[in-house]
């Protein structure tokens, strides 16, 4: 067999090539995303609508113990929406688009090329990073401009902000990729993805104060990353006394990091073992 000289020196997993292809995949993913109105709508518009509707309806303040400053409802609500916005841009968005690509044979097509699989995933996570970032900016911008949300001043809070962002994006993206295993047909994707995500939003205290969530549901919520992301962002935006009531005595930021880090490992393993390049074929 003759081997063309140019392919003889071909090293598919050379670091430079991986970096170049991961970047190329991210760019093409972003281009596809912004050209699909449904995707943009689901990912950006829904969380933004929630921010606007809830902040407009619930204008009351949260009263603290005597002597401390009250907290505007939006100040409490927006951090939760940032967390859920990230889950929307990562878990929900990737679970739906990746399963679509599985079922329409796009993955099949890609897997017939020398594109390294890691570059495909890198492109998905690159997309999720960019859209999550835009989502956070958007929600925060609306909160600050229209509902008087105050930004934290301590640098350590911004560090936590960034850490929760990166941990959340990475683990929820991988979780979304693993979750495609449960989606049996392309058209059922929204039905399989949205309900659990919506329920998690409620029991993680995104739409109501976490202290109002019944105890056993709190236990369920504590298993999943969303509750911890919400908690991390509330730490960033809210005073300590809110945690007394709401999170049983403190923000427990170390716990937030520990659980999210654990989820990063778990979701990596789940994605590794549950994701399938070949769906709809027996072998």
């Amino acid at each position: 067999m003759t081997v063309a000289t140019s392919t003889a020196s071909f090293r598919p997993n050379a670091p430079g090539r991986l970096a170049r292809l991961s970047f190329g995949r991210t760019i093409i993913e972003l281009r596809q995303f912004f050209r699909s109105p449904e995707q943009v709508f689901f990912t950006f518009l829904l969380p933004v609508l929630f921010v606007v509707i809830f902040s407009t309806i619930f204008t009351g303040d949260i009263e603290g113990p005597p002597g401390v400053e009250k907290v505007a409802f939006a100040q409490y609500f927006v951090p939760g929406m940032i967390a859920t916005g990230i889950v929307s841009a990562t878990f929900a968005s990737l679970a739906m688009t990746v399963s679509l690509e599985q079922h329409e044979g796009l993955l099949h097509r890609l897997s017939g090329t020398p594109l390294p699989r890691s570059a495909y995933f890198a492109g998905k996570i690159g997309l999720a990073l960019v859209t999550s970032f835009l989502e956070v900016i958007l929600i925060l911008g609306i909160g600050v401009a229209a509902y008087g949300v105050k930004l934290p001043t301590e640098p350590v809070k911004w560090l936590v902000f960034a850490a929760v962002f990166f941990l959340g994006v990475a683990s929820c993206s991988l979780l979304g990729i693993a979750y495609t295993r449960l989606i049996r047909t392309g058209s059922s994707a929204p039905a399989v993805v949205q309900p659990p995500y919506l329920i998690l939003q409620f029991i993680s205290g995104v739409f109501l104060q976490y202290s109002q969530v019944p105890g056993f549901l709190k236990v369920v919520a504590s298993i999943f990353p969303l509750k911890w992301m919400v908690q991390g962002y509330r730490y960033v935006f809210l005073p300590e006394w809110i945690a007394q009531d709401d999170y049983g005595g403190g923000w427990k930021v170390e716990q937030v990091f520990a659980v999210l880090a654990l989820w990063l490992v778990v979701s990596f393993v789940l994605a590794r073992f549950f994701f399938r390049w070949n769906r709809g074929q027996t072998g």
Binding site: Q32, E101, E104, G105, H108, R109, G112, T113, P114
Partner: peptide, 21 residues
């Protein structure tokens, strides 16, 4: 592996396209 796939061209019987591109 990838080096092997680099020498193959595949036109599947049916497969979706990247519709937005």
């Amino acid at each position: 592996d990838a080096a092997w796939r680099a020498r193959l061209g595949i036109v599947p019987q049916s497969s979706g396209l990247f519709e937005a591109l």
